[in-house]
């Protein structure tokens, strides 16, 4: 009696296993795609840069301070400060302020005490800038500080610091 084992039973089991592999690969592809597309683009750095550029363009032009910024007696104009957004044609969403910017003017001789300040927006975002060095909190508001130099009337030298902050963590961070 010659008994020869065939492989029919094993083929049926492997066919089911083939579908299991197929599902595994499909699940893996689904996870990869969802991981990539579920994370939003964080453009807050770019927004902060645009905001600081816009503010700086309003304050200084061709190396000189905006003539409307300084009054005839040489002092900084409070009227310009109070109406800064209109003067600079900057429109922020006032219903839900997600932005903050601050401009500090310093003399060359004293860089620790500002001679004039302009600020607008949600000041609460400013507190998040100091703790952003910690990686755990880096997804808070995006802060950008830039400095430059400009000349006022009578060749008076001013050092200018522009701080721009963008919140909007809900739309840009996950």
């Amino acid at each position: 009696m010659n008994i020869k084992l065939n492989k029919k039973g094993a083929d049926k089991i492997i066919s089911v296993y083939w579908f299991a592999i197929l599902i595994l690969v499909a699940g893996g592809v689904f996870m990869m795609v969802s991981t990539f597309y579920n994370s939003p683009y964080d453009v807050r750095g770019l927004e902060a840069e645009i905001l600081s550029d816009k503010v700086a363009d309003c304050i200084s032009n061709q190396g000189q301070l905006n003539f409307n910024l300084i009054e005839e007696d040489g002092k900084f104009s409070e009227a310009f400060k109070n109406n800064f957004l209109n003067n600079c044609k900057i429109i922020l969403n006032e219903n839900k302020p997600e932005y903050y910017f601050e401009v500090n003017f310093y003399g060359v001789d004293d860089t620790s005490n500002s001679v004039f300040d302009i600020s607008y927006g949600n000041q609460n975002w400013k507190a998040g800038c100091s703790i952003q060095e910690d990686k755990e909190h880096e997804k808070l508001s995006k802060c950008l500080e830039k400095r430059f130099y400009a000349v006022g009337e009578d060749n008076v030298q001013y050092l200018i610091k522009v701080l721009s902050i963008v919140g909007k963590a809900e739309k840009n961070v996950r």
Binding site: D53, A56, S60, G63, T111, K146, R147, V151
Partner: peptide, 28 residues
């Protein structure tokens, strides 16, 4: 960058204290 250009233009008007100004800017 843009801020560098602004500073450079200001130097063409008044370049006094240039080292001091650059040191302050580079602190940032």
């Amino acid at each position: 960058g843009w801020f560098y250009e602004k500073t450079s233009l200001a130097y063409s008007i008044n370049s006094n204290n240039k080292l001091k100004i650059e040191a302050w800017i580079n602190e940032d």
